[in-house]
Each structure stands twice: as C-alpha cells, then as structure tokens.
Computed example of a mutant assay.
Amino acid sequence: MSKLKVLNYTFQNLSQKNMSFEQVFQHIMQFMRNDPNGNYRLMFGTDSQVHSYYTRFITGIVIQREKKGVWACIRKTVVPRKMTNLHERISYETTLTEEVVSMFSDERKNQLIDIVLPNIYKGASLAIEGHIDIGSGNRNKTSIFVNEMVARMESLGVEPKIKPDSFVASSYANRYTK
C-alpha cells in the first residue's frame, strides 16, 4: 500500500489554529462518528480576493450533517502579487481545492465511508463535493471556465458544484478573503 505524502499545510477555524491535516481528518471522523446514521456532505472550495500588493486565497473544508450542523476549517494561501487575470485566478483556486481533496486518499475516504456504511439501509450517506466559485449564467464572466473546472473536479472523483450551489467557495471561504 503506497503512502500519499500529506502536504504540510496548516488549517484553522474560529476555535483552533495551526491544525495539521491529520487533526482536521480526526475532527471530521469524530463529527461523523457522533451520528453514524447521518446524511453527510464533505465539501471543499476555494475563493480569492485581489488586494493592493497580494492575492489571498482561502480553501474551506466543510463536513455537514444535513439539518444537524457542520464542522469546518480553512487554509490560507497568499500570492505576493495582484493576480488580475481571471482565468489564472480561477484555475489557481481550483488547484488549491484539488490539493486539499487529494489529501483525502482512497484509504482515508474509505475510513469515512466505513462510518456510514453499516447504516446506509437506515438512510445514512456520504457525498464528496468540490465547490467552484464560478457560474454558468450569461452575465457571469467565469462561465467560459465552467467546463474546464468541472472536468478537473470530476477527474478527482468529487461531485462538482457551481454557483448558486457552491457555497463553500462563494460564501464560507469568501468571508475570509477580505
């Protein structure tokens, strides 16, 4: 069995700073173990904000037990320049999401699935989603990138979500980019 290298990222939320990926994964496992009959959505998404001399990217990880709460955290990335090219920025947002998704190896995904698996006949479920901060509407400047970014999420085996359904990127992560 090959061991995937887990990138040395740190994550944070309102109650904890400097969490390792392993700590994040353990929080998600514990959240799911608290109710193994739940309907879970493990969601990832990145948003960015161009500032005067840098561009801030925030990647969110959210585990939601439908109608029964969430646990979430973020990872900050700063690029020391203004990234004004929209395609470059959207592509980098997707890359940062892909990096975090890839930390959830098949082995780790199976650990999460094993929590709900004994209860699927009672309605338990787990969906894994990649939220992309783009929309397909005619007036949306990012609509020309939808097919490309959706294909990238699908290639990772996660269900792509775009606006208005990509709230981890467009709401949760967005809040921390300012």
Results as ranks from 00 to 15, higher is better:
119 N>E: 11
119 N>P: 01
120 I>K: 11
121 Y>M: 02
121 Y>W: 03
121 Y>F: 09
122 K>L: 02
123 G>M: 06
123 G>L: 08
123 G>A: 03
123 G>K: 09
123 G>P: 11
125 S>P: 03
126 L>V: 09
126 L>T: 13
126 L>F: 01
126 L>N: 08
127 A>L: 13
127 A>W: 05
128 I>V: 15
128 I>L: 06
128 I>Y: 08
129 E>H: 15
129 E>N: 11
129 E>Q: 14
129 E>V: 08
130 G>F: 00
130 G>Y: 01
130 G>C: 05
130 G>M: 10
132 I>K: 01
132 I>M: 10
133 D>F: 05
133 D>Q: 05
134 I>G: 00
134 I>S: 08
134 I>A: 15
135 G>Y: 00
136 S>F: 04
136 S>Y: 05
136 S>Q: 14
137 G>T: 10
139 R>I: 06
140 N>I: 02
140 N>W: 01
141 K>A: 12
141 K>S: 14
141 K>V: 05
141 K>I: 02
142 T>Q: 06
142 T>M: 15
142 T>C: 13
142 T>D: 03
143 S>H: 14
143 S>A: 11
144 I>A: 15
145 F>V: 09
147 N>P: 00
147 N>T: 09
148 E>K: 10
148 E>C: 01
149 M>F: 08
149 M>E: 15
149 M>I: 13
149 M>L: 05
150 V>K: 01
151 A>H: 14
151 A>N: 13
152 R>K: 15
152 R>N: 07
153 M>G: 05
153 M>S: 04
154 E>N: 12
155 S>F: 07
155 S>V: 03
155 S>D: 07
155 S>A: 15
155 S>L: 02
156 L>K: 03
156 L>F: 03
157 G>H: 00
157 G>D: 04
158 V>H: 01
160 P>S: 06
160 P>E: 12
161 K>T: 05
162 I>S: 14
164 P>Q: 07
165 D>P: 02
165 D>R: 00
166 S>P: 04
168 V>R: 14
168 V>G: 08
168 V>P: 07
170 S>I: 02
171 S>I: 12
171 S>G: 04
